[in-house]
């Protein structure tokens, strides 16, 4: 005899749902040097969360630790909870497969591969099961970034810095991530191009993509942030909504040049 038990749907919905990403007391060392001194923060579904900080504060370390990039003499303590499961210490490719897509600092496009190949590589892990959907996604990327469409057969190394940043973002979107990590997308770009990039991030956010953004361009980043944190030498010193931090005198003085 078998019987099936119906789950009481109402109770399910009332159950506690963990945040999409929760960082708990994250401590990172490179050899003896401390890079993160116990960082805690949360990213909820659909949010744009921004971490601002100056050079060397540990922003890239946070991003790399979330996506499991292993580095020289790096020691990690603490938890990286994704949907409530601790993923700290897992291999990078497995973390990507869970739905975390990391646009690394400096873009890191594959310069010898064509624009289209770069984008296809973004969809690498979807290729086996969702091959049919990929062509449509590729077209969607080309609609959103027409320059990439025009240059689809060119080696990506020939693109300008701004175009490469679009490509890096497009490539990350090709995996249809649950969480998009953006590490200083403005780095090395002319102010006009930076505005374009932020426009795109805003559009993505409006479309429902969950984004964790780290930036030194505090002004523009805070304007698109639902919530934001200030990171100083490996510690979070302030938090609030984007608007709150924009008005905060300490932030104004240290990061907004006011």
């Amino acid at each position: 005899m078998t019987y099936t038990q119906e789950w009481p749907i109402e109770t399910m919905q009332e159950q506690y749902e963990p945040p999409l990403l929760e960082i708990v007391d994250l401590r990172v060392w490179y050899g003896a040097a401390t890079a993160l001194k116990g960082v805690d923060f949360i990213v909820e579904r659909g949010e744009v969360v921004v971490i601002i900080g100056s050079n060397g504060a540990g922003q890239t370390t946070i991003m790399k630790t979330i996506s499991g990039v292993v580095e020289l003499r790096k020691t990690v303590e603490g938890q990286v909870l994704f949907y409530g499961t601790d993923i700290a210490g897992q291999q990078t490719h497995k973390i990507q497969q869970l739905g975390i897509s990391h646009v690394p600092e400096g873009r890191r496009i594959f310069p010898e591969s064509t624009v289209e190949e770069n984008l296809m590589l973004g969809a690498y892990t979807r290729f086996k099961r969702e091959r049919g959907a990929i062509a449509g996604d590729l077209d969607a990327i080309f609609d959103r970034f027409p320059v990439l469409g025009e240059r689809r057969k060119r080696p990506a190394g020939y693109l300008s810095g701004g175009e490469q940043q679009m490509l890096a973002i497009g490539r990350a979107l090709m995996s249809r991530p649950f969480l998009l990590l953006l590490d200083e997308p403005s780095l090395g770009l002319a102010p006009l191009i930076v505005a374009d990039v932020f426009e795109i991030i805003k559009e993505l956010a409006a479309g429902g993509t969950t984004i964790l953004l780290v930036e030194q361009m505090a002004n523009m980043a805070l304007e698109i942030a639902d919530r934001a944190y200030v990171l100083e030498t490996g510690e979070i010193t302030l938090e609030g909504t984007g608007a709150q931090l924009l008005e905060d005198p300490r932030v104004k003085e240290a990061y907004l040049g006011a």
Binding site: Q91, T92, H93, Q96, R108, F110, L121, Y124, T125
Partner: peptide, 11 residues
């Protein structure tokens, strides 16, 4: 070209 970034692609 770039093993670390390749692993970020899920490879």
């Amino acid at each position: 070209q770039d093993p670390t970034t390749a692993s970020l692609m899920g490879i």
